[in-house]
Amino acid sequence: MEPFVKTQIDNGIATIAFFHPQGNAMPGIQLARLAADITSAGADADVKVIILKSGGDRAFCAGASFDELLSIANEEDGKAFFLGFANVINAMRKVPKLIMARIQGKAVGGGVGLACAADYTLATTAAAIKLSELTIGIGPFVISPAVERKIGTSAFMHLTMNATEFYDAQWAKDKNLYADTFETVEALDDAVATLAQKLATYNPEAMKLLKQAAWAGTEHWDTLLTERAQMSGSLVLSDFTKNALHNFNPK
């Protein structure tokens, strides 16, 4: 399958789906399209609720494109690379529509950020999570505000410091990242569809105000996540990270 980002609107529900054959690891061009589609759906008067999902039956999202990470040659390119997920997270928090995330498989790095930036997240029991950034000499700085906001600083530090370990879906549910988990993708899809259909019948103004109330105090994130992208963009040029990337991908 070819990479894609696409939106389908049906009965007040906008389903935004993304896919990349490399474990749904997202290159910058797709992240830009994803942020644009989220913003567009949020501005569409016919849309009452948004579902965010990925294609394939394994990984939900393996983070940003490793190929692009390897190509970073200067701080400007580094900042642009890390702004990819920053822009998606900011789009998710700013749209006046509630966003549900459907997590069918493992989420790593930026994928965890997307799951945490959604207003309501449902997953399968196969949807383990990992923050592996420390292993290559950087940190999950761009996504950390969204992750900490969802699961708390202590749980965020557990994930970050145990950078080689996956934490299972039950752990994520216990930490309030997942509202519920399901044994099969079919059961997950039924639950997502059922709640989305209910939300599509509710008062849009009430849901808009609920979203604003829930995200109060994050108005500075445009600046904050840009600063975090700059921080990561500098670290990725360090000798430590260059050596780690070389060892991880010798070619």
Rank of each mutant, 00 (worst) to 15 (best):
F4E: 13
D10Y: 04
D10H: 14
N11I: 02
A17W: 03
F18T: 07
F19Q: 00
H20C: 12
G23K: 01
A25M: 11
M26K: 04
Q30E: 12
Q30T: 01
R33Q: 14
D37L: 13
S40N: 11
A43T: 12
A43P: 04
A43Y: 00
A45G: 06
D46E: 13
K48A: 13
V49T: 15
I51P: 05
L52C: 05
K53L: 06
G55F: 02
A64E: 09
F66Y: 02
F66N: 01
L69M: 15
E75Q: 13
R93F: 14
G105H: 05
A107G: 05
V108F: 04
V108K: 08
G109H: 06
G111Y: 09
L114A: 04
C116G: 07
A126R: 11
A127N: 12
L131K: 01
P140I: 01
I143W: 02
I143C: 11
P145T: 09
R149N: 14
G152F: 14
S154C: 09
S154M: 11
A155H: 10
T160Y: 07
T164V: 07
F166G: 03
Y167T: 01
Q170H: 12
A172C: 09
D174M: 04
D174W: 01
E186P: 02
A187M: 06
V192K: 01
L195N: 08
A200M: 07
N203E: 12
P204C: 05
E205K: 14
E205L: 12
A206C: 07
M207I: 10
L210G: 10
A213Q: 14
G217V: 08
T223S: 08
T223E: 15
L224K: 11
T226N: 11
A229V: 10
Q230K: 15
V236Q: 06
V236Y: 10
L237R: 08
D239V: 11
D239K: 13
F240R: 11
P250W: 02
